[in-house]
């Protein structure tokens, strides 16, 4: 699980081009949107693409994404839950 979270952080930093952010800077519980990282709706779309490309998980409705993308913990839990 910890490894998954670390990989996830690295992938998010790369996909969203968070140049000045280190994986260690992101707290597993920290809100990704509206919080310190300042992510927005375009990032939410990028995260949907990331989950499908890296983990084969489809989120059809961007609204559904809002729940899943709350924090690294919630994304990791979603991935675990839907692992085949």
């Amino acid at each position: 699980m910890e490894e998954l979270k670390d990989n996830l952080k690295a992938a998010i930093i790369e996909a969203l081009n968070l140049e000045d952010v280190n994986a260690a800077d992101i707290d597993n519980d920290e809100p990704l949107f509206g919080g310190g990282l300042g992510l927005d709706s375009i990032d939410a779309l990028e995260l949907i693409v990331l989950l499908e490309k890296n983990y084969g998980l489809k989120i059809e409705n961007p609204e559904e994404g809002r729940e899943i993308f709350q924090s690294i913990n919630t994304i990791a839990a979603f991935i675990e839950r839907n692992k085949k």
Binding site: A15, I42, L45, E46, V49, E52, K53
Partner: peptide, 9 residues
């Protein structure tokens, strides 16, 4: 296929 939107925007 699956495309990330940032470059388009």
């Amino acid at each position: 296929g699956l495309l990330s939107p940032t470059a388009f925007i």
